[in-house]
Structures are given as structure tokens and as C-alpha cells.
């Protein structure tokens, strides 16, 4: 059974002005996310991708269609806590997610709300902080940390609830290169080492290629769904919806057009370098 299942979901925000009906933020959207997957959701600003994050754990409820979390319909209020415990969400601005004034007390916030035993909370908090590499900062005040460090604390706060799926809504958009790298490493660890399903919403191509699967959103709809290699093979389509193709893909494309026999599924820098190396040595 899928951990998150969107079935024909349509959602629109209410307008501040009376009588004005806004266009749907998500339209006829269907997607099934399986346990253990690492899915990246790509799309430009306003494509509806952030709304998905809020629909996936019942923060928003669909106008049409339904969202199932581990089989539970998000519309059922009695499952609300269970749903939020199953699917944790990390948002873009790390400053606005940290509640407490001490790192470890913030990480404990979720498990405390769930009414978990103090000794068990302690264990979870320590583990979560170690997973994101922030254990040594556990006694610090959050305002003294860098953006990347704060975001890792926010992630730890979600891990401590032991969700089976974590959705990250542009968690790196406000960070510098070092912060982005550290957060990215923490996210990969969640999926690869802890087996948590990860849904990673972003507009950075270099980050999306790390996922097992990429879902592309445009104009409130799902427009592409496949492995990174499949998705980026259609460079023209990606560019037509205002997204970038990784420079490595562009370069490989140009060289292939000149008859240089590079493979057509090169994404990472290392893959490209290896392939160039092989070809040159072979000649």
C-alpha cells in the first residue's frame, strides 16, 4: 500500500476579496508515493508544489478527490494526529519552525505533544540530533545557529516523532552553499539509512537528481513523472516550463549532437567525467 496517495485532488485557496474565486492551486492531481521512496517534486514558484505538502498531511483538505495517508483519508478528523505523526513536514523558513529556546527542547516538542514517556523522548531527541549532525549543539539557543544548522534542527524535530514519511518543502531555498550541502546530506541519510520515505520539494535541479524519482508540476498539474534520467532526457520540455536542465546534461547533449558518443543518461558530474575519461582513453 502506498504511504501517500493523491486521488484526483483539486484544491483552491480562498480569496481575501468577497466573490472572487481563485484558480485551483492543484488540479486533478493523482500521485502514489510508495514506502521507502525518495521522490523529488520539481516546479517553479506558483506551480502548486508547496500546496501538495500541506495536502499530504491534512493541513489543507482537498476540494475534490481525496488524499490517503497509509490508507487513512485526511478528511477524517479522528485520524488527524495519526496522520501528522505518519507524515512530517519541514518548511522553507527554518526560523519560523523552531518553537523552543534550546535546540534539544525544540526537538522534544513533537514527541512531548504525542504524550511519549520522558526517557523515550530523551532517546529519540539524542538520536534525531545525531542523525542530522547537530548533537553537539543540543544545548545551544537556535538564534545563534546558521540557517543550515537551524534547518537541520527543524528536520530533527520531525524525525523525533518517528514519522514514516517526511515532506520537505524547499528546505534549502534560503540557505547558502554550505548550508544546502549539509541539509542535503542529512536528507539523504534519512532515506538511505533510516529507510524513511522522503518527498523533497525543490527547484534546484542539482538536488533533484539525487532522488530516485522526479515528479514535475506545472500550472497546478502533474506534467512529468519518472527517474531523473528519464525526466532530464526531455530537456526541451523541462526548459519550456521554466525550469533548468543540469549543465552536465546540456553539455552532454551538445557533444552528442556533434557525434561524440557519450551515454545519454549522464546526470552527475562524476558520471559525465567518467564517461569522458572512458571515451578519451578508448580512442
Amino acid at each position: 500500500m502506498a504511504i501517500i496517495k493523491f486521488e484526483n485532488v483539486t484544491f483552491r485557496y480562498e480569496s481575501d476579496e468577497e466573490g472572487v474565486v481563485l484558480a485551483p492551486a492543484v488540479k486533478d492531481f493523482s500521485l502514489s508515493i510508495e514506502k521507502g521512496e525518495f521522490v523529488a517534486i520539481l516546479g517553479h514558484n506558483g506551480s502548486g508544489k508547496s500546496t501538495l505538502a500541506k495536502l499530504a498531511n491534512g493541513l489543507l483538505l482537498p476540494e475534490k478527490g481525496r488524499v490517503l495517508v497509509d490508507g487513512m483519508d485526511t478528511i477524517n478528523e479522528e485520524d488527524d494526529i495519526k496522520i501528522k505523526q505518519t507524515v512530517g513536514v519541514v518548511f522553507q523558513n527554518p526560523d519560523n519552525q523552531i518553537v523552543a529556546t534550546i535546540v534539544e527542547e525544540d526537538v522534544a516538542f513533537g514527541p512531548e505533544n504525542l504524550g511519549i514517556e520522558p526517557t523515550e523522548i530523551r532517546r529519540r531527541v539524542d538520536n534525531a540530533l545525531k542523525t542530522v549532525g547537530m548533537y553537539e549543539y543540543r544545548k545551544h539557543g537556535p538564534h545563534k545557529l546558521s540557517g543550515g544548522q537551524k534547518q537541520r534542527v527543524a528536520i530533527a524535530g520531525i524525525i523525533a516523532m518517528e514519522p514514516r514519511c517526511i515532506i520537505l518543502d524547499e528546505p534549502t531555498a534560503m540557505l547558502d552553499p554550505i548550508g544546502r550541502r549539509d541539509v542535503m546530506n542529512a536528507i539523504k541519510r534519512l532515506n538511505r539509512e533510516l529507510g524513511i520515505t522522503v518527498v523533497f520539494i525543490t527547484h534546484y535541479m542539482e538536488e533533484a537528481v539525487e532522488a530516485d524519482r522526479i515528479v514535475v508540476m506545472d500550472d497546478s498539474r502533474l506534467v512529468m513523472d519518472g527517474t531523473p534520467k528519464e525526466v532530464f532526457a526531455d530537456a526541451d520540455k523541462i526548459r519550456s516550463i521554466g525550469l533548468d536542465v543540469p549543465q552536465t546534461c546540456q553539455l552532454a547533449d551538445m557533444l552528442r549532437n556533434d557525434g561524440i558518443k557519450l551515454k545519454n543518461d549522464l546526470l552527475s558530474i562524476d558520471e559525465l567525467v567518467e564517461n569522458i575519461d572512458d571515451l578519451l582513453k578508448g580512442q
Binding site: 494526529i81 501528522k84 534539544e104 513533537g110 505533544n113 504524550g115 514517556e117 527543524a154 524535530g157
Partner: peptide, 20 residues
């Protein structure tokens, strides 16, 4: 945004809350 984040972390007004 904070309210959303707190809701996602199962905050419900302190009912049945424990402390680490």
C-alpha cells in the same frame, strides 16, 4: 507559518503533553 509547523508537530493545546 509557526502555527502550521506546530500543527504538523501534533500540537493540540497541551492536552496529554509530556515533558522530556
Amino acid at each position: 507559518e509557526l502555527a502550521n509547523a506546530m500543527t504538523c508537530r501534533c500540537y493540540n493545546g497541551g492536552q496529554g503533553k509530556t515533558t522530556m
